[in-house]
Design a protein around this nucleic acid. Sequence first.
DNA 1: GCTGGGATTCGCT
DNA 2: GCGAATCCCAGCC
Length: 170
Amino acid sequence: MGQYLVVNHPQYGLTPLTIVEVEAYTNNDPACHANGYTAKTAPKRALNLFGAPGTGYVYLIYGMYHCLNVITEPKGTAGAVLFRGVVDTNSDGPFVGTNLIGPGRLCRDVGITTAQHNGVMLTKQDAGLYLATSVQGPTEEEHINTTPRIGIQHAKDYPWRWIDTRYLKK
DNA sequence: GCTGGGATTCGCT
DNA sequence: GCGAATCCCAGCC
């Protein structure tokens, strides 16, 4: 939270966007795509969930939208953070004044797709999509709230969604 | 080989 | 508040 997701905008080039909303999914989590599987038995879609930390996991939801995650657990253990919302804090960026809230909208507006970005290493800059330390540093705890995750059918009570209250009220 | 549901969004009512 | 848009693949026949 508060760090940068750097995207490669077709006109503005590399653009740092500040992360303001995330959710966590992990091993033995009923809501995780990898739940009930191992790295060997996982369906193709969820395979990257068992990859090396820093790997991007992009999947298609409802046939229409892409969702971007980053792997957070050691290789072989499922676990990821879903990026649900970013804001453009650049004075002249492409999305100034437009907070990209919602995982599908975020991916649509910055051009993240499974074809281009699933499995890329988000700690390296060569894919034009990566994570970076922000100038303002991580979000202070006073600005962060936790809530249950959105839209899931299982483990609805896990308080594993984090929001920056300066941009999101609930 | 077919069917149904999903970590969503937007527009219309 | 509800439904449509639309693709992947697990589960079941």
